[in-house]
Design a protein around this nucleic acid. Structure first.
Lengths: 140, 140
DNA sequence: CTTGCACCTCTAGTCGCTAGAGGATGTAGG
DNA sequence: CCTACATCCTCTAGCGACTAGAGGTGCAAG
């Protein structure tokens, strides 16, 4: 029975050590058993769980959504409708965010292109910021 | 001399009342004069400044960047090189964020499409989350 | 004169960590 | 066995940019 320290767990899962403790503190990860000297001793299953969490975080899922996804994973006989719904909701969020960022990109490009690199009173960056009416995409 | 209340200022600038007070507290907006009853009394210039801040925030600039942009605006004889640099940096950030969100979008689409709406143990959403190796775009 | 909204200050909470203090434990070399 | 050093422990506080709420005051209309 090999004991996995928190440092090992962090290295293998790609989650930082304080973050592992944080996940335990908010109940996302069950408190592992302890060594004689009170040090955490993880199981391989904990590493998988941490990797799952990390991956979901990278995909932008919120902690609460991950909590739900994890309880689904823990009970494989449930319907996956909730998991599907969470992923779909996240997809819609991402699509909206992309659209909104594209509008910002266009706005910023106009600003940067229009800047004659002279003095501030001719600067298009400052000018556009001061007057929203000059925006080409007014919907932000 | 009409006195503009904080509520009026908020309505006209599109910044919420507590946020106006917050901006004052962090020194982004000069503390306005007060009425006899200790209520804030804003000038039209404050409304413009608030609108500027709001617009910049909508474009995703951080408070510190806005602080710099505002000092530039306050002194129109300066070179606009800093403003240009700030806008360019923000543009690069936005472009990177868009690229990364596109990768996430592809990932989420694969997950959602692959979901057979059955039980969790056949669910592609859960499966992909558990195993990063299944990602089509491994670079996140 | 009273009702009720808008204003005031202050503190604490949000999210998802991250940093640091101050101390205990575990391990490798001498 | 001792020492040095990395790693671990708990705890509190901080980040950014607000937001919420408590508890109280000002002001204008009916």
């Amino acid at each position: 029975m090999k004991k996995i320290t928190i440092g090992e767990a962090a290295r293998q899962s790609g989650v930082k050590v304080p973050t592992v403790r944080y996940y335990e503190s908010i109940g996302l990860l069950a408190a592992p058993s302890r060594s004689e000297g009170n040090q955490r001793s993880f199981e391989p299953a904990d590493i998988s769980r941490l990797a799952f969490i990390r991956h979901a975080r990278e995909l932008g899922f919120e902690i609460d959504a991950i909590r739900t996804l994890l309880t689904l994973q823990d009970d494989p006989h449930q319907s996956c409708a909730s998991a599907d719904a969470i992923a779909k909701a996240r997809l819609i969020e991402v699509e909206q965010r992309i659209r909104s960022l594209m509008a910002l990109k266009a706005e910023l490009e106009t600003m940067v292109e229009g800047c004659g690199h002279g003095r501030v009173d001719q600067c298009r960056v400052i000018e556009v910021l001061a007057d929203h009416g000059q925006c080409t995409h007014p919907h932000h």
